[in-house]
C-alpha cells in the first residue's frame, strides 16, 4: 500500500517521500494493471471501445473536492494515499477473470511490455514543486478512478462480470493480507515440525493455520539464519505470493529497488532500508523469476521466550517478509506491524 514505506507514525515527517511513493505506485497501477487490462479486454473483443463510451455516459466524473487546494499539505497527502488505496482495491476487482474469458498472468506481462522495451506504456513527466506534484496527483487520481469506474460499469453492463462475482472477489481480497504472513512466521518460530513442513512443502503447510493456501505456483520460503540473510525481489515484473500475503510494500514494484538490490544487495539494504548487516552474514537475493514465489522467514527476535503466537505475530512486519528489515524487537513499539484484520 502507498504508505507502507514509511513507518505508520501519527505524524508525517517526510512529505516528499510520501508524495514520491504515491507517484510511483499510482503509475504502477495505471501502467501495469488497469490500462493493460483494458487493452487485453479490447484485443480479445470482450469489451469494445464503444462499450466504454456507452458506459461512460452513465458514470459521472468526480469533481475536485471543495477547498482541496486550501487544505494543508499533510491532509492532502493523506487523502491521496486513501484515494490510491481505494483505486488499488478497485483495480483488483476489475481484474477478476470471467469464466468465459480465462486469462493467464503471463499474457498480461507480455502485452504490457514487461519483456520488451518498445511496448511500455509511457509515464508522463512530473511537475516540479511539491505543491504542483500534489495537485497533479489529485487530478490524475480523479481521472484514473473515473476510467476505472467506467470499466466496471461496462463489465457489468456487458455481462462479463456479475455482482455475485464481484462480492466473492471482494471477500477474497479482504481475507488475504500480510497478517497471514505474520501468523505463518510466528507458527514457524514456535513449532519446528510446522517450520520444516513450511520450508519443504510451502503452501500445503499453511492449511493447519486455516489460511487459504492460494494457487499461484509454488511458495518458496527463504529462512534467515545467523549467517544468511535473504531478501526478495522480482526483477522481471513484481511476482510475490499475493494470493497468500496480499500486496507487498509499494517500493517492491519500483524499478529502482529492482535494479539496485541485485547489483548491490548489502549496500542497498544499508542505504535505502537502514539495515546494516555484519560481514559474517551472507546476503542472498531471491529473484522471483518463475513459478516459485518467495517470502522470507525472518529470525525470531531475542527476548521473546514464552511469548504467545499472537504476540510474536505482531513483531512481523511486511518489510520483514520481503527481507528489507528484521522482525521488530520486543523493545520497539510495534507501529509498522502487519495489520490485524478488522
Amino acid at each position: 500500500m502507498a504508505n507502507s514505506a514509511q513507518t505508520a507514525h501519527g505524524h508525517m515527517q517526510d512529505h516528499e517521500g510520501h508524495v514520491r511513493a504515491v507517484e510511483a505506485d499510482l503509475e504502477y497501477w495505471r501502467t501495469k494493471r488497469l490500462e493493460p487490462r483494458l487493452i487485453q479486454l479490447h484485443r480479445r473483443g470482450v469489451l469494445t471501445l464503444y462499450d466504454l463510451i456507452s458506459a461512460a455516459a452513465h458514470v459521472p466524473a468526480a469533481l475536485p473536492a471543495a477547498g482541496e487546494a486550501t487544505h494543508d499539505m499533510e491532509s492532502r497527502i493523506r487523502a491521496l494515499e486513501d484515494g490510491l488505496d481505494e483505486y488499488i482495491r478497485g483495480v483488483a476487482l476489475a481484474s477478476i477473470d470471467s469464466s468465459d474469458y480465462p486469462f493467464v498472468i503471463e499474457d498480461t506481462r507480455k502485452e504490457r511490455g514487461d519483456y520488451d522495451e518498445f511496448f511500455r506504456i509511457a509515464k508522463p513527466p512530473h511537475a516540479s514543486t511539491l505543491t504542483e506534484r500534489i495537485a497533479r496527483l489529485e487530478h490524475d487520481l480523479r481521472e484514473y478512478q473515473h476510467l476505472l469506474d467506467v470499466l466496471m460499469r461496462a463489465l457489468i453492463d456487458k455481462g462479463v462480470l456479475t455482482m455475485q462475482q464481484l462480492e466473492r472477489q471482494r471477500a477474497f481480497l479482504a481475507g488475504r493480507g500480510a497478517w497471514n504472513g505474520a501468523r505463518i512466521v510466528a507458527r514457524a518460530w514456535v513449532d519446528p515440525v510446522f517450520k520444516q513442513a513450511l520450508l519443504t512443502r510451502g503452501r500445503e503447510a499453511v492449511h493447519e493455520l486455516n489460511i487459504p493456501p492460494g494457487r499461484l505456483g509454488k511458495l518458496g520460503v527463504a529462512e534467515n539464519t545467523a549467517t544468511l540473510h535473504n531478501v526478495v525481489v522480482c526483477t522481471l515484473c513484481s511476482c510475490y505470493p499475493h494470493d497468500l500475503l496480499g500486496d507487498p510494500p509499494w517500493w517492491y514494484r519500483d524499478d529502482t529497488y529492482k535494479e539496485r538490490i541485485v547489483r548491490d544487495p548489502r549496500g542497498t539494504l544499508a542505504d535505502r532500508f537502514n539495515l546494516q548487516l555484519p560481514e559474517s552474514v551472507e546476503v542472498r537475493v531471491r529473484d522471483s523469476t518463475s513459478d516459485v514465489r518467495w517470502m522470507v522467514l525472518p529470525r525470531r527476535p531475542a527476548g521473546t521466550d514464552g511469548w504467545s503466537e499472537e504476540e510474536l505475530a505482531r513483531l512481523v512486519t511486511i518489510d520483514s517478509l520481503v527481507g528489507t528489515a528484521p522482525a521488530l524487537t520486543p523493545a520497539a513499539p510495534a507501529q509498522a506491524e502487519c495489520s490485524v484484520p478488522r
Binding site: 544487495p265 548489502r266 546476503v283 529473484d287 518463475s290 513459478d291
Partner: peptide, 26 residues
C-alpha cells in the same frame, strides 16, 4: 523443470561483493 541457481554478485557484476543471487531458471 525448474532449478534454483546460485550466482555470485562479484562474478555477475564484476564488483567487490560477497553477496549472492538465487535465480529460478528452467
Amino acid at each position: 523443470p525448474l532449478c534454483s541457481v546460485l550466482f555470485s554478485v562479484h562474478e555477475i557484476f564484476c564488483r567487490a561483493s560477497q553477496d549472492t543471487l538465487s535465480v529460478d531458471l528452467h
